[in-house]
């Protein structure tokens, strides 16, 4: 009896979670300008229309620039922070690491408003660069979390063995540490890329006259006739996100298997 209720609960929960997402592709292929049942017929027209929207292309280009830059910057910072926190001892380490990880739980709207105030106060123009700044801030804790797990599963005696066999600190990093944490780095890049690509609030506050993809999408909902096109775009984005996250998790797990460590984290 107990098992029965759990099953019902699980099914209801999953429907609640995924039904809206499943509706995306359904209406993306539905041959009607309104998002409503019953379905009318099959069409790929909405996907076709995606190619003829210059504003969309501009937003997509902005989003890609922001996401790629943020991913690379956040992951680079993450490498330094994860290395420092797993290998070195320094004063105030715990509170420092806590402060760096804080944006993970801070309300984004607070971060966005605070950044906006500072940037305007400094007299900087809002652009995609200011968005990158904000995204690096919120992506770095994710990168650190992933990379710390990668660095932690690295046996310190591997480094010592490399020194012992004649390598310097720099060549040891290149020959031993980097290859072993590479799966973690790839995984961090992919996840921070995805986070930045999806991010709305900071982009909305800090982009100025520019649009990013999520901001553009919200804007399109003012025009009901555009909604099916957005459904098509959403379908593509969902597929892309799933593919990216799956790849990231694959690399993270492979990294842990390679170094023979225990699985202690991860998002999937």
């Amino acid at each position: 009896m107990r098992g029965g209720w759990f099953r019902v609960y699980t099914i209801v929960y999953l429907i609640f979670l995924y039904a809206p997402i499943i509706l995306l592709p359904i209406f993306a292929f539905n041959n009607a300008t309104t998002v409503a049942f019953p379905l009318v017929g099959f069409t790929t027209e909405w996907f076709g229309q995606l190619w003829t929207e210059p504003a969309l292309h501009k937003a997509l280009k902005n989003s890609l620039i922001i996401a790629i830059s943020s991913a690379i910057l956040a992951t680079s910072f993450g490498i330094f922070a994860a290395r420092a926190s797993t290998r070195y001892r320094f004063p105030f380490k715990a509170p420092l690491m806590g402060l760096i990880m804080l944006p993970l739980v801070l309300p984004e709207v607070i971060v966005a408003v605070a950044l906006l105030a500072v940037l305007l106060g400094m007299g900087l123009n809002l652009s995609i660069f200011t968005v990158i700044l904000g995204h690096v801030l919120i992506c770095t804790p994710f990168a650190i979390a992933i990379l710390t797990s990668a660095f932690q599963s690295l046996d310190q005696s591997l480094e010592e063995a490399s020194y012992d066999l004649g390598e310097s600190a720099v060549s040891t990093f290149r020959l031993v540490i980097l290859p072993l944490v590479m799966p973690g780095i790839i995984s961090a890049l992919l996840i921070t890329f995805t986070i930045s690509l999806d991010e709305f609030i900071i982009a909305f506050f800090l982009a100025g006259n520019e649009n990013t993809l999520p901001v553009y999408i919200l804007g399109q909902f003012r025009f009901p006739q555009n909604v099916p096109v957005i459904m098509a775009l959403g379908t593509i984005l969902v597929c892309l996100s799933i593919a990216l996250l799956a790849t990231a998790e694959y690399f993270r797990r492979r990294g842990i298997a390679k170094t023979g460590g225990k699985d202690t984290g991860g998002f999937l």
Binding site: E160, A161, L165, V176
Partner: peptide, 14 residues
Amino acid sequence: PTNMVFQSYAIFPH
């Protein structure tokens, strides 16, 4: 001019 055999062997797994 020394080399070490580590307790964990420290074989490079990659």
